[in-house]
Design a binder for these strands. Structure first.
Length: 547
RNA sequence: GGCCCGUUCGUCUAGUGGUCCAGGAUGCCUGGUUCUCAGCCAGGAGAUCAGGGGUUCGAAUCCCCUACGGGCUACCA
């Protein structure tokens, strides 16, 4: 038999991305709270969201919690907050009421301010709250003779698989229960015999599926087996629940990762059996680690927020935010890996990405997560940032390093702002700020011994008097003139008297004042540092130079 | 093993039969700007478009085969 193609399949049968004409674009992200969200899944969510935004449609968040055994407390909140932090807001999804009905011990708690009061008209958005609906659908299939009760135990199935394996044959489930009279199966089930419900897949012919990026794919029905649509615990598995929900929630485009490609025959057959029109599937390629393999913890499967502790090894994976990456940069970078606007632009603000996004630009082959490029892009975003805003973002990092108090006063904030004006173009990640700006704080900087050796001690006769005279001259500079230009003029004048110019002039002063050889413009630095610090450091360095 | 998907500079990608001895970005190298670093500017190296067969006057672009990579092969998602 040949499965009908969805009506939205273009007549030419070529891959197409065009949204179904006349149909409101509704996309969804449907994670399962069995683990923490990392950038791989986040990117899938991003593409889905982008598609909805691009066509002024709706983006929904649905929680696929049909596997009650694998729930991870806390995962739900991390997922919801990751999306929020990234600005991937949902139009329909979990709300406060739904959350209240969840078992906090198994799901963890979610901050109430993260959730809307009313999740939307197509709820509930937790699959665990839709069991009645799934049973209704399964019963319909049963009544139509399109599904049947099966009574193999997991052990029996394992044995069947092992046997096929031993014969080096592919295991395709072919049940003896498929042809069991329906009422007999029902009777046994109602008697309480443990059972599952399986869907009758076609056993011969070709099953055709469609994907927006790849077009039509044909599958030999002989390779397909009758999959479970209702587990013995009364929950449906993904294959049933997702299909029912996508239909009930009026999803127009099902954006999901390629690992679902091979199960799409199941989904298409289910839709056909139910007489429903499938959404346009968009199977997006994965993001891999530098080794070309699936993103793993050590290869960059980082969360956006939250800290993931491996329960076995105790290894901690820090988040992109903790590592000093900006949401906007991550957003931009993620959008550009696996999708291209078609031209050569790279730095694209959110609204531009939304405006340009289309399914045609999505690539079919997996990408490798390039941390170097993200870091570069992060630097670009930092440089573009409003300095005041930058200061606000950097403050927590400085506080964590003990450079400023956790709750800094106005003067401190102002000072940090001026410091950042000088360091902004050198920052690639926010977490580099403490290292880069440490010398701006405290009475004396940490003096780098190599630099002291090279720039101060090498001339124990010449450097101390130079530094001391400079301190004396700068001490006389009126407060109002404590600015980079007057400082530079005086410094050069003193330097001239000591036969110093260019590097000979600035290097010792820089080491004296900052403890190191690299940094922002010397005179701007001195201006920000303030007279008191500069003088103290110059005199201290003179002492160091003498040995 | 079986089935399916994929394969353009190290990496992200542009490219949909001629304008491609393949363009951009990142990373790397060199030079310039300069008090150092960063930034910025300029330049360079880097892809026989996985390999092989076709089709065509002409192929990175279409077809076939092979190789390699990935996914799936659960009462997980």
């Amino acid at each position: 038999m040949t499965m009908p193609l969805p009506n939205n399949t273009p007549a030419t049968e070529t891959p197409s991305s065009r949204p179904n004409p006349g149909k409101r674009v509704r996309t969804r992200f449907a994670p399962s709270p069995t683990g923490f969200l990392h950038v791989g899944a986040l990117r899938t969510a991003l593409f889905s969201w982008l598609l909805a935004r691009r066509y002024d449609g709706d983006f929904l968040l649905r929680i696929e919690d049909t596997d009650q055994n694998r729930l991870v407390p806390g995962a739900l909140e991390q997922i919801i907050e990751s999306l929020r932090v990234m600005g991937i807001g949902y139009d329909e999804g979990p709300d406060a009421r739904a959350l209240a009905a969840l078992d906090a011990e198994r799901y963890g708690t979610v901050r109430a301010d993260l959730l809307p009061a009313d999740g939307g008209a197509h709820g509930p958005y937790f699959q665990s709250h839709r069991l009645d609906r799934y049973r209704e659908v399964v019963n319909g299939l049963l009544a139509d003779g399109k599904a049947y009760f099966a009574f193999e135990t997991p052990e029996q199935l394992a044995a069947m698989r092992a046997e096929a394996d031993a014969r080096k044959q592919a295991f395709v489930y072919r049940s003896g229960y498929r042809d069991l009279p329906a009422d007999e199966g029902r009777a046994r089930a109602e008697r309480g015999e443990p059972h599952v419900v399986r869907f009758k897949m076609p056993q011969e012919g070709v099953i055709r599926t469609h994907d927006a990026l790849r077009g039509v794919t044909e599958w030999d029905a002989k390779t397909q087996d009758d999959f479970v649509i209702l587990k013995s615990d009364g929950f449906p598995p993904y294959h049933l629940a997702a299909i029912v929900d996508d239909h009930d929630m009026d999803i127009s485009h099902a954006v999901r990762s390629t690992e679902w490609l091979s199960s799409s025959p199941k989904h298409f057959c289910l839709y056909a059996a139910l007489g429903w029109e499938p959404p346009l599937y968009v199977h997006v390629a994965n993001v891999n680690g530098p080794d070309g393999k699936k993103l793993a913890k050590r290869t960059g499967a980082k969360p956006v927020i939250g800290r993931i502790t491996d329960p076995k090894t105790g290894d901690v994976t820090t988040s992109f935010l903790d590592d000093g990456y900006l949401e906007d940069a991550l957003f931009n970078y993620l959008a550009l890996t696996g999708w291209s606007p078609g031209d050569e632009s790279e730095i694209l603000p959110r609204d531009e990405i939304v405006r340009l996004f289309n399914v045609d630009g999505l690539s079919v082959s997996p990408a490798v997560f390039d941390l170097d490029k993200l870091t570069w892009m992060n630097g670009v975003y930092i440089r573009q940032m409003d300095p005041g805003e930058l200061a606000g973002r950097v403050l927590p990092f400085l506080a964590a390093a003990g450079l400023v108090p956790a709750d800094p006063d106005e003067a401190t904030r102002d000072y940090v702002g001026r410091v950042l004006l000088l360091e902004q173009e050198r920052l690639k990640r926010l977490d580099e700020a403490p290292e880069l700006t440490a010398f701006f704080f405290g009475d004396l900087p940490e003096y780098d011994s190599r630099s002291v050796e090279r720039r101060l001690k090498r001339e124990p006769e010449a450097v101390p008097p130079f530094l001391e005279e400079l301190a004396a001259v700068l001490a006389d500079l009126p407060d109002a003139a404590w600015l980079d230009e007057p400082i530079e003029t005086r410094t050069r004048a003193v330097g001239e008297r000591h036969g110093r110019e260019r590097g000979e002039l600035t290097h010792p002063v820089r080491v004296a004042v900052t403890g190191r050889e690299v940094g922002p413009g010397l005179f701007e630095t001195m201006a920000v540092l303030g007279r008191e610090r500069v003088l103290r450091r110059l005199r201290h360095a003179a002492g160091l130079a003498r040995g």
